[in-house]
């Protein structure tokens, strides 16, 4: 492998990892604060991609479509939490799994109903459609770099929000002791709604960002969901920091595995997970 190819793969791996972080952070946030395992989280990634495709078709502007999609995702999140997820707080894990499996069915059916089952594609927004030459024959698309930087920005924003704002303080308190937050006289239901909606929106934003880079197909949500499980398991359930490092790790391993050990490429991250579990059954950064 030449240095430039290595470099390109390195950026690819980081960029994929950062995208994974965007989705996994929502998953781990919702679990950490609310104790809910949302299997339908991946469906929101799919919804984000389909929404942005739909609005780009109608408005022609990717930026505007992305914004509308994010807002719609936020509303869907609020609706989901208010109607269904709310019923789960006092239920066991099994009920959470089942209810969210039911949601996956519904989301997949709606996707088929509204947009059909043919693969779709979104064009890269023209402002970002150029490529940076790496060597004479290799170049790297600007859009991917933009997505990577965008994800870093979101990660930084989340870091700031969790560590410096009042909402973040409540989130951290909720993670360590749910009853305590209730005792503080805070409307925990409102906190849960906000956290869940943000989590869902993060997944949808990832879907929006990924739409111009890959084709939009049914079942894309489940695929990414399980990869995010690997991220969360490696990073440690409920830990955002863990999710960040694990996402980069998984992104890099997955990218390099497809070049170095192509026969095992899809399995590599699971093998990585098994190894980490052997050493640290609770993940790298479990609280």
């Amino acid at each position: 492998m030449t240095t430039s190819l290595f470099l390109v793969q390195l950026i690819n791996g980081l960029q994929y990892g950062l995208l994974l972080f965007l989705i996994a952070s929502g998953l781990t946030l919702v679990f950490g604060v609310m104790g809910i395992l949302n299997l339908a989280h991946g469906s929101m990634y799919m919804v984000g991609a389909y929404l942005v495709w739909y609005f780009v078709e109608h408005t022609g502007s990717f930026g505007l479509s992305a914004l509308i999609s994010a807002v719609i995702a936020l509303l869907i999140g609020i609706l989901m939490e208010r109607t269904l997820i709310r019923q789960l707080y006092r239920r066991n894990h099994l009920d959470q799994v089942l209810l969210t499996i039911g949601m996956i069915f519904v989301f997949n059916a709606l996707q088929g109903l509204l947009w059909g089952n043919d693969p779709l594609g979104v064009a890269v927004p023209s402002a970002l459609s150029s490529a940076i030459p790496v060597t004479d024959v290799l170049e790297y698309p600007v859009y991917r770099i933009f997505v990577a930087l965008f994800c870093v920005g979101i990660a930084a924003l989340m870091y700031f929000m969790i560590n410096k704002t009042r909402l973040g303080m409540l989130i951290r308190a909720g993670e360590s002791n749910r009853e305590m937050v209730e005792c503080l006289g805070i409307d925990i239901r409102k906190l849960y709604t906000i956290v869940f909606a943000i989590g869902v929106m993060l997944a949808a934003i990832a879907g929006v960002a990924a739409a111009p880079m890959s084709s939009i197909v049914p079942g894309m949500g489940e695929h990414i969901l399980i990869t995010c499980f690997v991220v969360v398991v490696i990073g440690g359930m409920g830990s955002i920091k863990g999710a960040f490092i694990a996402a980069l790790l998984v992104g890099l391993v997955d990218t390099f595995a497809s070049i170095l050990v192509p026969q095992l490429s899809s399995m590599m991250i699971y093998i990585l997970m098994a190894f980490i579990l052997l050493i640290k059954p609770q993940g790298l950064f479990s609280s």
Binding site: D95, G102, M103, V106, A109
Partner: peptide, 17 residues
Amino acid sequence: TEHWMLFMGALIIAMVM
């Protein structure tokens, strides 16, 4: 219906509830 998954999903949700 070809959209049987919608009903199946709704059924599962109703079942849990």
